[in-house]
Design a protein around this nucleic acid. Structure first.
Length: 426
RNA sequence: GGAGAGGUGGCCGAGUGGCCGAAGGCGCUCCCCUGCUAAGGGAGUAUGGGUUGAAAGCCCAUCGAGGGUUCGAAUCCCUCCCUCUCCGCCA
């Protein structure tokens, strides 16, 4: 959520900055609602105060044994007025709040202008794009040979946009997750956390997935209004909802492996082949809660942690900074890591690392106690994939394919694969 | 699923209609005292919001959540959520 105080004091600045995200802020509507809010709130609180005073004196008179009839009559008119004022205030506050919950975060000054992902800016590349002396296959062609990757089976069990993995391909998938977790735990100083894969509305409001993006989610039909998580970011970030961290606890760095569920509504025809875009995939997520003045550095740091995984796996990639038009709702600044996929002959997103500043924290009331002021202040949240396991598996299959259709297993994973250095689909 | 008990500040815990944003204790911070330590004495110590250029001040709200009764609700009534105990079932 954008700071309501900033919206009041400098709405034109906010409108200007949101244009970078191609968001058209309705300045007139907000200003008018805000004006009403102010008048109604002052009026309501004054009436409330008046009644409190009156009620107090009734109590005092009664305890002295005086007749309170006259006093009772003098406050009788207050009740209706107060109810009326409260009701109008509630209406205005709710509309204002609804509006606020739909406003995206203000982008960082470094965010380049642009309408779509085509205008994201490449910051750096790592690794050499592999050259093959044979005709390259994509992961579907390679893995389908021995039914180790079986989409038809998944269709029978669940439907389209699911997959089944079998044998050592399933093991490789698990090995990747284990490998990623251990690197982040042992080398990057994260603490592992295990969380629910089903969350409530409040949690999704906190991270910014609701109210605006309900169609991206799988909602349970249960009357409790629960949803499958689209990313571990939701449950993990919400552990700090309504909490105040001490300065000594900061920064809090968590790593979490979960399945992720996305409805992919509106992506018909996109990546229909293969396991690039699925309703369910596994991901290792990095989440940091940091002091406000540290989020910029933490964001760079966290991005480097995700990069490290690709480097250790020997997968070529590039880092792009998302332009305004492609930048997520809650994010102030996002770096995408894009891994090279020989089967598609292009870079594809495998991690998205974002600095949300206080946007999520304000929605969640996630705070830390600033030792300089002694007061609770909003903390900053930073997160990113480290990495998406399914897409990493695809990248390994395609980048490490051999002329005979087998797959070379990267050195760092061999320990998790019984020491095997290659995997064969035949 | 059945039966019962309960949700109060960082923690414990009192509080059945007004003088309660809340006794008392613990913890924490500061001060005093004391060779050091321990013990002791004193003061302070919730959060959100409004008003203001800002601070101070003032005001409003908050005792699991939401409604209701009342001039007035932590306290009475209703609904929901959660926790605990016993029984049943179960990965």
């Amino acid at each position: 959520m954008i700071d309501p105080k900033l919206l009041r004091s400098d709405i034109d600045y906010v409108a200007e900055r949101l244009k970078v995200k191609n968001f058209d802020l309705n300045v007139a509507e907000i200003s008018s609602l805000e004006e009403k809010r102010k008048a109604l709130q002052i009026k309501t609180e004054a009436l409330q105060s008046e009644r409190n005073t009156a009620s107090k004196s009734i109590g005092q008179a009664k305890s002295r044994g005086e007749d309170i009839q006259a006093l009772l009559e003098s406050v009788s008119h207050l009740g209706d007025q107060l109810d009326e004022a409260k009701a109008s205030l509630k209406v205005v506050q709710e509309s204002l709040n609804d509006l606020l919950m739909y406003l995206p975060n203000i982008p960082d000054d470094a965010v380049p202008l642009g309408a779509s992902e085509d205008e994201n800016v490449e910051l750096r590349t790592w690794g050499d794009i592999p050259e093959f002396e044979f005709k390259v296959k994509d992961h579907v062609e390679l893995a389908a040979i021995g039914n180790k990757l079986d989409f038809e089976l998944a269709v029978k069990i669940a439907g389209s946009r699911f997959t089944t993995l079998r044998g050592d391909l399933a093991t490789l998938h698990r090995a990747l997750i284990q490998f990623m977790l251990e690197v982040h735990l042992k080398e990057h100083g994260y603490e592992e956390i295990y969380v629910p894969s089903i969350v409530n509305k409040e949690s999704l409001m906190g991270t910014g997935n609701l109210p605006k993006f309900e169609e991206d989610l799988f909602k349970l039909t249960d009357e409790r209004e629960l949803y499958l998580i689209p990313t571990a970011e939701v449950p993990v970030t919400n552990i700090m909802r309504d909490e105040i961290a001490s300065d000594a606890e900061m920064p809090i760095k968590l790593v979490c492996h979960t399945p992720c569920f996305r409805s992919e509504a509106g992506s018909y025809g996109k990546d229909t082949k293969g396991m690039i875009r699925q309703h369910q995939f596994d991901k290792v997520e990095l989440v940091q809660f940091v002091r406000p003045n540290e989020s910029e550095a933490a964001h760079e740091d966290l991005t480097s942690h995700a990069e490290k995984i690709l480097q250790k796996l020997g997968l070529p990639y590039r880092v792009v900074i998302l332009c305004g038009g492609d930048l997520g709702f809650a994010s102030a600044k996002t770096y995408d890591l894009e891994v090279w996929l020989p089967g598609q002959n292009k870079y594809r997103e495998i991690s998205s690392c974002s600095n949300f500043r206080d946007f999520q924290a304000r929605r969640m009331q996630a705070r830390w106690r600033n030792p300089e002021t002694g007061k609770p202040e909003l903390l900053h949240t930073v997160n990113g994939s480290g990495l998406a396991a399914g897409r990493t598996l695809v990248a390994i299959i395609e980048n490490y394919q051999q002329v005979d259709g087998s797959i070379r297993i990267p050195q760092v994973l061999q320990g998790y694969m019984g020491g095997n250095s290659s995997l064969s689909f035949s």
